[in-house]
């Protein structure tokens, strides 16, 4: 397969996954903003955390002096200036898909092209923050469509592996960031850890990754921070957890290694990260510090992306 084709397949699904994750964060944020404010000193705390969770905080304040819900929604959903707005993600996904139209099945192409056309309409009609849920669930549907059409129609060859790698690298990145948001929202001094507000924040993190019910099934317990972290980092049966992402990443990289008859740097790196997650324990993570652990993970995940590029995409 052409390296350029592999590159476009990787980024096409990666951008769709990114759009979905931003939509999830927007959805969770708008829900949180309906609850009593986390902090009276910073009434925008939820919306600022949405910017952090999507790695758009700095880019946002390059454009605006002050955050308002309308601005954050516009910036994350529709902005042309924000390189990782949902609009830009879907445009990029479509541009990548268009560049490798021949490597896609018509179902997958139509899922992406249809989404891109529909996106123009959403953008034209300007979605209000109160109406963001309808838009966010549409974005999730798009992602499901793209994913589902690929699952049902794509040949299981190297191209399919490239697509899946894009999904899981991006998803691991997003889950780590969403979890790390907790670090950015400082509890007001008088709020006890494990109090009502703390509970709300952890539960909204679970919602953002569709894990609210899963948590109950797995732990049959009220929401406890270390269990949320365990679920989203170490539990392989949780499909958005870091361990699950890396189980998939190593699988698809091994498939590529088998197909091409050659292993390389990306296989070695992925295996190293995966085994650390598989053998990891929550206590250790909390000892290192959750934020430090996640920061380190994000850096490693980024390095793996670079290794994949080096090995296959150029």
């Amino acid at each position: 397969m052409l390296s350029r084709t592999a590159d476009s397949l990787f980024w096409m699904t990666r951008y769709v996954e990114r759009a979905e994750n931003i939509a999830r964060v927007l959805h969770a944020t708008s829900r949180m903003s309906l609850m009593p404010h986390i902090s009276n000193e910073e009434p925008m705390a939820e919306w600022l955390s949405a910017l952090s969770a999507t790695a758009s905080y700095n880019a946002f304040f390059e454009q605006y002096d002050e955050a308002t819900p309308e601005r954050v929604v516009e910036f994350l959903a529709f902005s042309e200036a924000n390189p990782s707005s949902i609009f830009r993600c879907l445009s990029n996904a479509r541009a990548n898909a268009r560049a490798v139209r021949t490597a896609l099945t018509s179902d997958t192409w139509e899922a992406i092209n249809g989404a891109w056309m529909e996106m123009q309409r959403f953008r034209r009609d300007a979605v209000a923050p109160s109406d963001i849920n309808r838009f966010a669930s549409w974005v999730k549907d798009v992602s499901l469509n793209v994913d589902g059409s690929a699952f049902r129609t794509m040949l299981r060859n190297d191209g399919f592996c490239m697509q899946r790698l894009g999904v899981y690298i991006e998803r691991a990145d997003a889950t780590a960031r969403i979890l790390d948001v907790k670090y950015h929202i400082l509890l007001p001094a008088h709020e006890p850890v494990g109090g009502g507000l703390d509970y709300l924040q952890w539960s909204s993190i679970l919602r953002a990754v569709s894990a609210h019910t899963a948590y109950r099934w797995v732990y049959r317990s009220s929401i406890k921070p270390w269990l949320v972290a365990e679920l989203l980092i170490l539990r392989e049966e949780m499909p958005r957890s870091l361990a699950s992402c890396y189980s998939n990443i190593t699988y698809h990289l091994d498939e590529l290694g088998r197909t091409y008859g050659r292993q390389g740097e990306s296989q070695r790196q992925a295996r190293r990260i995966y085994s650390r997650l598989k053998n990891g324990r929550t206590e250790e993570i909390y000892q290192t510090g959750l934020h430090e652990f996640l920061t380190e993970f994000l850096a490693e995940n980024g390095r793996l992306g670079a290794a994949i590029t080096e090995q296959y995409l150029i």
Binding site: M1, L2, S3, R4, A6, D158, L256, L313, I314
Partner: peptide, 8 residues
């Protein structure tokens, strides 16, 4: 000789 760059 003309070649194309592939993943292999």
């Amino acid at each position: 000789v003309c070649y194309m760059r592939t993943t292999e």
